[in-house]
Design a protein around this nucleic acid. Structure first.
Lengths: 311, 311
DNA sequence: TTCATTTTTTGTGTAGGACAGACTATGACG
DNA sequence: CGTCATAGTCTGTCCTACACAAAAAATGAA
């Protein structure tokens, strides 16, 4: 039990693990292999990491989430990594419209009330579906990108998430009142997947299609997803994966889930974390775009009606 | 890179770490010290844990969260631990009223719609404040206890959390409309603290007192809390800690935060995780009960007015 | 190009040891 | 009998150093 020593500014390995989401083992391994990080030691011989190294580690982590590999980026100095970061930014004049830019400015200037009411009025103007497709989803992406480039602090991203979540949850309640209840959809994410907004947007869109959505929030162990499907007689399991979710874990988990569920239960997966997935597990539906959801729900209904004809 | 092998039912150490939140180091240390767990090995010599042992580990984890120490409980057989679990359950005839029991039944019988509408109508009947104090908070506790005793599955707890969260967030929006804006309160939790409901209840209660609540959701690194306080000119930082949050981490983190913040910014902490805290850090307010919040807000206002007289 | 095979890269696993800090028990003293 | 200081025990996290399977990249053949 060696808690943090007050050693000026340098932080112990446990803090680095927490802040970078790189395991202690990995940190020690990189140190041996690449010579970075190169922490100094405290009075007990334990590693302590200077803030500059932690910053670089955070940067490396972000680049890895984008697909870069450790061996290529760890040896590079901080400023070249920053260039890499900027270079990966594709300015999209079509999506990145003025309105989104305004909203981003509200976030970075901490004008919460204005952000909240601007979003609220957009829901009124565009309607819920268009709001999600044209405002909410692009904003989630834009905020993620801005954070990635260091233009937004974590707390600013958190605040946006919170405001958006309040809004979506409020409207999710409204959307639910529809009387139709065709496929029963169970929504959740795998453990360690923190991103709730993607799931929430899917929930609202499906609810608007008249599907009976039962969201379990984020971070459900696979075994519990299986139990929940049985308990609620779900027709579809919808899973959301964010950019940062490790690809091995997602495909591994999906395969495991597919094996554990009955064949007639469909698995729908979506989000940036599975968009560029290589080997798609069998009998799993990949939803690459939010606006494809209505069609998929329709497909499910048609399929089910069809099979009923022969049942 | 040694991902899970398909070895029947036994799971590798990484999965055990994920499911029990016990670190690999701890698992190996217990094996060495206490002879439990005693995993078999796969074809590569890696530990694989039979489900029964994982169950016992989960049980041990829960008991430790309640204050039991490893050395006392690890050597005991599964059934004695179960008794310990039951024994710690205090049946409270005053709080555990019929209504709460009904709601718990809705959860365990997966009657989502009825749960949702029962809660909704209780908000109407009791009003928001009494709903939180008399229904929401007791239910959070009851559900936690029921899960702890194995009477509710994780997915059932998740679903309850989700339903309650939707409700509270919807009403949080309503409560916010009040024009008063006395203390500006920044709400969040430390990293690894997942429980959002406690925070949400506090937010609503404070908003009803006319405080300007800015919730950042869960899991904010301390450094970001400090930045957020500066950016938003917050008067108070409110932190929520659930039962399972390690006490060393909470008091350590609170002390660190206290040092980093200006003296005039108050820190309010609450939740089961700090209820039985031993050494209270200086200049930190511990809120032991939700219904004490109005008084604390009043105290803050009085204090501030008073200091203004002399300013 | 596309597919199959080899090579490199990379993270997670193993073992065993050390020790600081939290907790508990003991004893002295008012 | 309670309170406080001290000694002893318990416990998790850190250390070193090495091994190796699976993923990714590079190579070669069709």
């Amino acid at each position: 039990m060696k808690p943090r020593e007050e050693t000026g500014l340098a932080v112990p390995i446990s803090a680095v693990e927490r802040e970078t989401a790189l395991s202690k083992d990995t940190l020690r391994m990189w140190e041996r292999r690449y010579g970075f990080p190169s922490p100094t030691r405290d009075q007990f011989g334990d590693r302590i990491y200077p803030p500059a190294q932690v910053d670089k580690l955070r940067l490396i982590r972000r680049l890895m989430d984008k697909g870069f590999r450790p061996g290529k980026i760890i040896p590079q100095p901080y400023h070249s990594l920053l260039e890499l970061l900027g270079g990966s930014h594709v300015q999209d004049p079509f999506n990145q419209n003025d309105f989104i830019t305004d909203l981003l400015r509200f976030i970075s200037e901490h004008r919460v009330t204005e952000l909240r009411s601007a979003l609220q009025s957009q829901v009124q103007n565009l309607g819920l579906r268009r709001f999600i497709l044209e405002v909410a989803a692009p904003m989630v992406r834009a905020v993620g990108e801005a954070w990635f480039r260091g233009e937004l602090a974590i707390f600013e991203e958190h605040l946006f998430t919170e405001v958006m979540q309040n809004l979506l949850r409020k409207w999710a309640g409204e959307a639910r009142t529809t009387e139709l209840k065709a496929p029963r959809v169970l929504l959740t994410t795998f453990p360690n997947e923190q991103h709730a907004l993607g799931l929430l947007m899917v929930e609202v869109l499906m609810a608007m299609e008249g599907a009976e959505c039962i969201s379990f929030g984020i971070q459900m162990p696979i075994a519990d997803i299986v139990s929940a499907v049985a308990a609620h007689q779900a027709d579809i399991v919808a899973l959301s994966f964010s950019q940062a979710y490790p690809r091995t874990r997602s495909s591994e988990g999906i395969t495991e889930l597919r094996k554990a569920l009955q064949q007639h239960v469909e698995i729908w997966v979506g989000g940036a974390g599975v968009a560029r997935i290589k080997r798609v597990p069998e009998k799993v539906m990949i939803i690459n775009d939010l606006d494809g959801i209505p069609a998929e729900v329709a497909r499910w209904r048609q399929k089910t009606d069809h099979s009923r004809l022969f049942a």
